[in-house]
């Protein structure tokens, strides 16, 4: 077990390293930060001067090591567009985004687990069919459309909740909740609908398994058997989906933060892209990708905690 975790940890670190190289190549090599920063009207001399100032005349390896070395210390350099240091802003905005993502994920799980289990136990009845139709619809609704719809109904129409903005939870917990509720629902309800289908199918798979019959033969009722044994077994495939969804929500946060004007990493990424602020984009993308890799690492470890069969060396 310990060896397995260590091995997965190694894979995670290697992937993160590889991802950082890819991000660097995409943005610093494919792109031209100096020319982009100065705009198309800049003279070649000005661009060349800025290249030297930005250190872009050095070898790629040196540039990469310089960037990644700083990044490991939280120093992502200074934006040539906004003239502001990137690292501190990244930290601030990341905490906002994490509130959004974690809240949405919790909501999705709270929706999906009870509904999915119910839909599985009541499979084949009308309730199950309605649930599956609703979740099919949920898959098709983009998070930003849901956000726009919620704003127009609950903020503009009914005036119950603020249409946008963000309040720091420590300053005003009530205001924080009021501002986060609609974003959480736009991201979480849809992913909840998607997740419901997976929970249902995973539980349905388990319902037919032999071990549940053995457990009932010991003296558990059908419900007890599902709750004590079935759910844990169904958790393995669901966990994998959860990992994928967490990443989907993380990316979806870009658009949802934009809709609700939340000062998180996502809206900053959108802003930075439209400002062509390559250095900031590079820092944000690296953060998002490493977070995504971290999620799949944690999911892998959790899955092997739940299912002992995964602890022995898994080969493709």
């Amino acid at each position: 077990m310990a060896w397995q975790v260590l091995r997965r940890c190694g894979i995670f670190l290697l992937s993160a390293l590889a991802a950082s190289v890819v991000v660097f190549l995409l943005l610093s090599v494919l792109g031209d930060p100096a020319r982009t920063a100065l705009g198309t009207g800049a003279t070649d001399e000005a661009v060349a001067a800025l290249r030297v100032q930005m250190g872009l005349d050095r070898s790629l390896l040196v540039q990469y090591l310089d960037w990644i070395g700083g990044a490991l210390h939280g120093d992502f350099g200074t934006s040539y567009v906004t003239r502001a240091p990137i690292g501190p802003q990244l930290a601030d905005r990341l905490s906002v985004t994490l509130w959004l993502v974690v809240g949405a994920m919790v909501l999705a799980v709270l929706i999906a687990v009870p509904l999915g289990v119910l839909a599985a136990v009541k499979a084949g009845r009308p309730a199950g069919n309605v649930l599956s139709a609703v979740s099919q619809l949920g898959v098709a609704v983009p998070a930003f459309l849901a956000g726009l719809l919620l704003v127009s109904v609950f903020a503009v129409g009914l005036g119950w909740l603020p249409a946008n903005g963000y309040v720091v939870p420590a300053d005003d917990p009530g205001g924080f909740l009021a501002h986060m509720l609609l974003p959480w629902v736009s991201l979480g309800a849809i992913q909840g609908a998607v997740l419901t289908r997976y929970v249902r199918s995973a539980v349905l798979d388990e319902l037919g398994k032999d071990y549940l019959r053995t457990v009932r033969a010991k003296g558990l009722t059908r419900t007890q058997a599902v709750l004590r044994h079935g759910l844990r077994n169904a958790a393995v495939p669901v966990l994998t989906v959860l990992g994928v969804q967490l990443v989907t929500i993380l990316i979806g946060a870009v658009v949802v933060e934009w809709v609700f004007v939340i000062p998180g990493v996502g809206s900053w990424l959108a802003d930075s892209v439209s400002r062509r602020d390559l250095l900031a984009v590079q820092a944000i993308v690296l953060t998002v990708v490493v977070l995504a890799l971290l999620v799949s690492f944690v999911v892998d470890v959790l899955a092997s905690v739940v299912d002992p069969r995964l602890r022995t060396d898994r080969t493709a």
């Binding site: 032999d210 071990y211 053995t214 009932r216 003296g219 059908r222 044994h229 844990r232």
Partner: peptide
Amino acid sequence: ERELARLRGELVGMVFQEPMTALDPT
């Protein structure tokens, strides 16, 4: 089901055909 569960294991024990899948793998 509740009444049946109470007497399963208590009054009647059962051994099944397929031991490979009869136990909770987790």
